[in-house]
Design a protein around this nucleic acid. Structure first.
Lengths: 154, 154
DNA sequence: GTTTCGATGTCAGGACTTTGACATGCTCGA
DNA sequence: TCGAGCATGTCAAAGTCCTGACATCGAAAC
């Protein structure tokens, strides 16, 4: 091997830090850090907040669905769920009445906690959105979805 | 509390799964999963690959810089580095000659391994890029950078 | 009716990452 | 000259997450 064809870069880039993957990762990392900071004063972690938010959107959802919605495994989700349950933010029946799925619900306390935290998180999102031209925002979101879909249907 | 002003959503969205943060996270998660699959046959984890790639770009970089470049802590980076060193993919002097930083270098074996893995990863990136209109790609990347910068300068 | 399959929840183990802390060594200003 | 400040590397402990495995339950196929 000498001048054997080396892998063709996916698009023009002087170095790795200009690749799509790197820049996507950097943006996601920045978002995660900002959210952690914002949530710290509300005593919530990012996974916990994601869980509450999804629960408010789809009450009675199962643990597995919750896991899929927050991009983690069932096992990880179960740990977060136990924590939230112990903190009195969510409720879960001891036994399922129909299938095997245990529907999770937000408590009043959980909803209140979510509302408070939501304000802080929304502020972060606003800051992020303000950085991109309004005319390009929708296209950006659509493209992100398309990329995710293209990678998902492996 | 009834109609107390609830936090204003950062942009129009019917539910959480349409928010910027959620969609960014989904895209990043999809990328991560695809990369893990692609790297599995090369016996490399995503952090390991990131490390090798950055090392090829900036030989002799310090462990701390490496950590910053891969968005993890120095401690995590040190663990990855030890693994790579044990696998003979990178070298590191036992003691620094000038400062305290220990310059890390790729071995021939490390470079070969990187080249092989790179082909697989580039394929993933190509798949991702193909999903978005070519005319919008550059704008997308610029906007991702802007968002990261806006969140970073907290 | 019985069997096979898929989905859910859980346990056990290990791998990875982070927070917190400390020692070392350069650099710059008093 | 010497001290404060900053960056690097490392150790220890805890938390988080994942892979692998198992039992349970409903639904669909036979």
């Amino acid at each position: 091997m000498g001048e054997g064809r080396r892998p063709e870069p996916p698009h023009e880039a002087k170095d790795v830090t200009e690749h799509v993957g790197y820049r996507l990762k950097r943006a996601a990392a920045a978002l995660r850090t900002a959210m952690e900071q914002a949530l710290r004063e509300h005593d919530l972690t990012v996974p916990q907040y994601s869980c509450l938010e999804l629960l408010d959107e789809r009450p009675g959802i199962s643990g597995s669905d919750l896991a899929r919605g927050t991009f983690v495994t069932r096992q990880s989700s179960a740990v977060v769920l136990r924590g939230l349950q112990q903190a009195g933010l969510v409720t879960r029946p001891a036994a399922a009445e129909h299938g095997r799925a245990l529907p999770v619900h937000l408590t009043d306390q959980g909803l209140a906690r979510l509302r408070a935290a939501r304000a802080a998180v929304y502020e972060v999102e606003r800051r992020m959105i303000a950085a991109v031209p309004a005319a390009r925002l929708e296209a950006l979101l659509v493209d992100l979805d398309k990329m995710a879909a293209a990678l998902g249907e492996a």
